[in-house]
Structures are given as C-alpha cells and as structure tokens.
Amino acid sequence: MPTDVDLRHHGDQEVGPGLVDLAVNVRPGTPPDWLAALLRDSVAGLAAYPDAARARAAVARRHGRTPDEVLLTAGAAEAFVLLARVLAPRRAVVVHPQFTEPEAALRAAGHEPDRVILHGDFRLATTPEGGRLRGDAASEGGGLRGGAAPEDGGLQAGVVPEDADLVMIGNPTNPTSVLHPAAAIAALARPGRTLVVDEAFMDCVPGETESLASEAGVPGLVVIRSLTKTWGLAGLRVGYVLAEPSLIARLAEAQPLWSVSTPALVAAEACTSPRALAEADAWARDLQVERDRLADAIRALGLHVVPEARASFLCVRVPDTPGGLAVRAALRERGYALRRGDTFPGLGPDWLRVAVRDAATDDAFTAALKAVLGDTPPPSAC
C-alpha cells in the first residue's frame, strides 16, 4: 500500500462521543419506520440460507436489466474487492479525487494502479477531438486552464491513457460532490476496457439524470450501487453490481457463499420498489435545497466550496491560513466531526468534506465555523 495517503481512512473514524457527525454521509433519521419493520420481520427467516433470487429480480426491474446482469454484494466495498480479485488488468487507472476503496482493493489484490488526478472543478469534459477526456482546470484547483496538464514524470493530469484496460471513477464523486455528465463517462469506454463507475451517491440526484445503471449497451461498463447511504443501512451492508452476464458470473464465482444476508436481501428488494424510489427522489429534492443553502453560507465566510455539488456532502477548501487541519481540529473542540481531505489523492490538508444535515444542524455548524475562522488571523486569498 502506498504511504503518501491513508487509503483506508474513512469518515466513521472521525466520529466519537459527544460530536455532531458531519463526517459520515449516511442520511439522518434512517432507516425509515417501514423499512425497519421489514428488517425486523426478516429475522424470522434467519434459519434458512439466503436466497438472492427475488432481490436480484427486483434490482433488475428497477434498472431495466435482466437478473443475470445483477450481483448483490455486502455493500459497494465488497464489489470493489471482487473486481480486484477477478480482473487481471495490464494497466489499471483510478480517477481521483474519489472514494479510496477502489484503489485500496486493487493494491490489496496485488495490482499497481495509476492515478489520474483531476484539477480545477474536478469535472470530466470531452475534448473537441472527441473521446479523450480531461479534467476541467480552474484557478482554484491548481490545474491548467483549457486542457490537460503537461507531463509530470508519469501520467498527464486529467487524461486517461488509451492503453488503460481498467478505469475506475465515481459519479457523483466522493468527496468532491461533482456529478460528471453521463456522456463524458461513457466516452471512456473502449473495446477491451472495463469501465467501473461507482454510483453509490447517484440517488442524491433527483431523477438520477446522469446514471449509466440502465445503459447495458456501453462496452465493458460496470456500475456499482449502494443502498447504505440513503436508507441508513451502513451496518447491514447491501449494494449491487450491474454488468454484462459473463462478468457477473465470474464475480459470483469469486464471492463467498451467502455473502449477502437475508435481511440485506429484503432491504435490496424493498429499496428498489416504486415506493422507495419515490421517497428517495423526494428526499433528493429536499437535499438539493438545503445543500445549496449550506454551500452559500460557507462561501459567505470566505471559503471555497466545489461548485455545483450534487451529492449529500460538500467539499470545502480552507485557505492556507488557518488551514484545513487546524479548522477541523478547532471545530472538533466545538463538537463537530468533519472528514479530513488529505487522505484523498488529489486533495490535501486544506480540504474538508462536510455532510449536509437538517437546517438547524447546518446553521449551528455554520455559526461554529464562523467563530473558528474569527479566532484565527485573516485568511489569505483562496
């Protein structure tokens, strides 16, 4: 495992007794009562081995796929591990900043993935000549405006090399909250390439407008989804993979028997029902309003927020003075746990991830942040 960043550091390690949790991206107040009741009832069937058939069929219906294109997993994390064990890429590439488990899983399986670092506003965009992608570069992120960064001894920043036969990217991306255009991600597909898209936070987007989950025709496409965030099931572990049947069969062969428990299968079926989808979409619309309000409040304090956030969190840059780590520590003393950004390749110590909560919690946090910034010397330009 490389020592430049701690790929195994996650938001749950930031929380503790007496702290308001702004570090973990699980929707507050979940699971809802109707889902909790189903999970309690499922305990009556624990004597039997889990049977994933109904849940696979429900997930397939939800995305217009066939059941042989679906594999239920113990959360998205298991999906990354299975892919790392089954695939044998010659050149794997992980597009950062993003959730670090895909790279950690590849390295644990003996692969040495390259990193493509997006700068500026952390978005993918197709180049005029088509096909190849770059990271849009704006002055905030340190990239070059108008194209890919120059050679830096390794990969060009923001450019996915043509010979990469495995590419992994998040959408919306953790921790930047950036939603890439579906067309920009699909343009990464190539014959002979596996394109893995982590859509764990796609249900934060009303209408899931940029999802590729139903696009079975994109060559080599693998979409990973999680049900733990929106439905408050992080402790239950439930997610799924959507891919062509031959790859699903290989992943299933590598998966431990009965990896997904009966309660998790019940949750997968319930959370892909029309009722659940309607509830999730309504939540996403409310989230959008509160997220934008919180982003405006943080910007009013002079901090940079990655624009057009679309997930359940914001990515915030603090000026060098006082610095992200100092602000994080001071907020912790005031009772708020935030996710540090320096364990994400492509970010650094001045970056923080802030989960969006209810209006009262967000207002109290903003007041604490204002107080912390007021206790430090005036910030330099960000």
Rank of each mutant, 00 (worst) to 15 (best):
G220A: 01
T230M: 14
L277Q: 11
T127M: 15
V197Q: 04
S246L: 13
R40P: 12
P2E: 14
V327W: 10
Q288M: 09
Q255N: 05
A278H: 02
A213T: 03
R225D: 13
L301Y: 00
R310A: 15
P181G: 07
N171T: 07
A182I: 06
T361F: 12
K229T: 14
S211G: 06
E215Q: 06
R250D: 12
C382V: 15
A326T: 13
D358N: 09
T366D: 10
P274Y: 00
A48R: 12
V24E: 05
E129R: 10
Q98L: 11
C382A: 14
A337W: 02
T230K: 10
L352N: 04
A278V: 01
D41V: 03
E279P: 02
H63Y: 15
A267G: 06
V356P: 11
D358C: 07
V305H: 02
P256W: 04
R237E: 15
V305F: 05
E69N: 00
A264L: 03
A355C: 10
Q156M: 12
G323F: 10
V20F: 06
F344V: 03
S177C: 06
V159D: 08
E253D: 13
P28I: 00
H111E: 12
L294D: 11
T176F: 03
S246G: 13
G130L: 06
T30N: 08
L87G: 05
V178R: 00
L338D: 03
R225S: 14
R291K: 01
L294A: 07
A326Y: 11
D136I: 13
A44S: 11
D68N: 08
A48K: 08
D296S: 12
G146L: 04
R85T: 09
T176Q: 04
A183V: 12
V223D: 10
S214Y: 02
K370P: 10
L46E: 13
G374N: 05
V81C: 10
P150I: 00
G335C: 01
G158L: 09
R334L: 09
P206C: 01
R132P: 13
D152Y: 11
A105W: 04
G18P: 01
V356T: 03
A280Y: 02
S211E: 07
G323A: 04
L242N: 02
V316K: 07
A359M: 09
T30W: 00
V5L: 02
G335Y: 05
L301N: 04
P17R: 00
H96P: 11
A295R: 00
L347P: 11
A47K: 09
G192N: 02
R40S: 14
E333N: 04
D286L: 05
L22F: 06
A44H: 05
